[in-house]
Design a protein around this nucleic acid. Structure first.
Length: 300
RNA sequence: GGUACCGUAGCUCAGUCGGUAGAGCGUCGGACUGAAAAUCCGCAGGUCACUGGUUCAAUUCCAGUCGGUACCA
């Protein structure tokens, strides 16, 4: 353990993570690592509320716009990448910020994630085909046979959970549950974790206002440009999906905008649910900049 | 002013041949180890516009009042 410090700054979407973290990074004269799984992609800009050019100039950011929307990427890769990047950063700096709203990605950096081999694309495709043709009951049947222990605890209504467990069983030849150690890994730096939140009604208003701003900034045009890639995983994203449906004539622009707002609210709620479970977060209002600086300073 | 229809959950609406009600959406809560801005689960919520009448019993039938919509003047 050295005396280096990673400061996590997270919270629901639209709470004000970006601008606050830039002020914090400037104050501590250091860099920001993004933990926003959709800001990774260079073609996604408006809907994912990426920091703008000026903000990116003010503070050095890592892991923003470093992937193509067609690239395959995952949490485990992120863990590896960020740990390596932190080694580089901590040569010069004593402190770094990890900022974003993707809770699973933050946890992978802080606690690690169990190792599993990559899944060949055709295996995932064929399992998806089984699901589409035979339904979820078939997935349950397969998993029950391959890994009865995990079958007992898994959410049996959730196709992604079932599919993932089956995948791992098939590529490793061992039950998923056996390989899921779920033990926090040791890090050679200290970590403090800050979560930002505010009154839900106020947050919901901010979400609504931000969506309107995105529309003014040209969100519809951005969606039209990306329409041809709509099947990519990276485009299964709030703000694009709803507009793709609008382009398809599924609903009016007004309906699509309402759906973006609703889905963003739901996303924010899921983020808060995830964070509340982790008691290591220290909660602040985004206005408590001075208190946050004091809190970080005490940990240095 | 007249006629017709309507007024049930936050919204859109179902329903009860009279026995105090439901669905979708939203809200709220939750799960979640390689799709995570993804995926999945759950709960709550209604003086059935108001007042009176008939009835053992009215959200339901009747009358009036108020509000809305359409058409006629």
């Amino acid at each position: 353990m050295n005396n280096k410090l990673l400061v996590v700054v997270t919270g629901p979407t639209a709470v004000g993570k970006t601008s606050l973290s830039i002020e914090l990074a400037k104050h501590f004269n250091t860099v920001i690592i993004s933990a926003d799984s959709r800001q990774f992609y260079k073609q996604l800009n408006i809907a994912v509320a990426k920091p703008d050019q000026n903000q990116l100039k003010e503070v050095e950011h890592h892991y923003i716009s470093f992937l193509d929307i067609a690239d395959y990427y995952n949490v485990a890769q992120f863990e590896t990448d960020v740990l390596q990047k932190l080694d580089e950063i901590f040569v010069e700096k004593d402190i770094a910020f990890l900022v974003g709203g993707s809770g699973l990605y933050i946890d992978a950096v802080c606690y690690g994630i169990d190792y599993f081999p990559d899944v060949p694309e055709d295996l995932r495709n064929s399992l998806n085909n089984i699901f589409e043709q035979k339904g979820i009951e078939e997935l349950r049947k397969i998993l029950k046979e391959k890994d009865p222990e995990y079958y007992n605890i898994v959410d049996k209504d959730n196709p992604q959970r079932l599919l993932r467990a089956i995948e791992v069983c098939l590529i490793t030849g061992k039950p998923f549950s056996e390989q899921r150690l779920n033990e926090p890994k040791k890090r050679n730096f200290n970590i403090i974790k800050i979560a930002l939140n505010m009154d839900r009604a106020v947050l919901n208003e901010r979400i609504s206002a931000r969506v309107d701003e995105m529309l003014d900034a040209g969100l519809i045009d951005e969606a039209k440009e990306l329409y041809k890639y709509k099947e990519l995983n990276s485009l299964k994203t709030v703000g694009y999906r709803e507009l793709f449906d609008y382009i398809d004539g599924k609903y009016t622009i007004e309906e699509a905008v309402e759906k973006i707002k609703t889905n963003t609210r739901r996303y924010a709620k899921r983020q808060v649910t995830w964070l509340k479970k982790d008691e290591s977060y220290k909660w602040f209002s985004p206005e408590q900049k001075d208190e946050i600086i004091d809190y970080i300073t005490l940990s240095l």
